[in-house]
Simulated assay, not measured.
Amino acid sequence: METIKTLNKWANRHTYFPIDLLRIALGVFLFIKGISFFSNTEMLMELAEPIKDMPGSMLVVHYVAPAHFIGAILIVAGLLTRWAILAQLPILIGAVIINFIGEMHSNNLIMALITLLTCIFFLLYGSGKNSLDYYFKMQQ
């Protein structure tokens, strides 16, 4: 817990508006991906083809779209950002792994890696000053 407080204090001292815009852009990107997975389930099933024989593969397929959708809303608002990103990490790590197990799509791999690295950054950085987390913390 002390580590989180230390990271929050550091992040609040070094908050810049472009970083908040990056967090919002990450959330919008994940929201759009969530909508595309909801509207095109066949595409999601095709992406999950390399893991179809593994136990729990249908659970994974049903986890991806809602996690992107709900997590993206929380990330954009800056509410429970670290928790929302923790829910995204298994999906993004799986997206990188699926590119190596199945057919390699370099665009998907690059997009997944950039999103994964951005999520790791915000996992450490937090939501920043322009967020609901900061607003509610100041209301206490």
Rank of each mutant, 00 (worst) to 15 (best):
P18F: 08
I93L: 13
P55L: 09
V76A: 03
M45S: 10
H14K: 11
S36D: 15
A95M: 08
Y125T: 01
L30P: 00
V60R: 10
M58T: 12
N99F: 03
N107Y: 15
M104I: 13
P66K: 06
P90G: 08
S106R: 09
P50L: 02
P55V: 13
R82E: 01
F69M: 14
A95W: 04
I24P: 02
T6W: 03
V76D: 02
V64G: 04
I35Y: 13
A112E: 00
F121D: 06
I19P: 00
I4K: 07
G56E: 12
S131M: 05
Q139R: 14
T15M: 13
L132Q: 05
A87L: 09
E2F: 14
L89P: 03
R13T: 11
T15Y: 15
F121T: 05
I110A: 13
I98P: 07
Y125M: 00
I24R: 06
Q88Y: 07
Q140L: 09
Y63C: 07
R23K: 07
L7Q: 07
F29E: 10
W10M: 06
I24Q: 01
I51Y: 04
A25F: 09
M138Y: 06
M45H: 12
T15I: 11
I85Y: 05
A65P: 02
Y135D: 07
S36L: 08
I32D: 05
R23G: 02
S36V: 08
V64I: 15
T81E: 02
W10K: 03
K137D: 12
L86D: 10
Y135R: 14
M43A: 14
I101Y: 10
L132Y: 08
L80N: 11
P66L: 06
M45N: 11
E103G: 13
A65C: 04
I24E: 03
T3I: 14
W10D: 01
G126Q: 02
F121Y: 14
Q139F: 08
F121E: 04
M1I: 11
W83F: 15
A72N: 06
K137C: 01
I97K: 07
G78Q: 00
F122M: 04
D53F: 09
T118S: 04
G78I: 00
V76F: 01
P66N: 05
T15V: 14
V76Y: 03
L109F: 12
V76W: 03
E103H: 08
G71E: 05
L116T: 08
R23S: 01
L44T: 12
P50K: 05
A77F: 03
H14G: 06
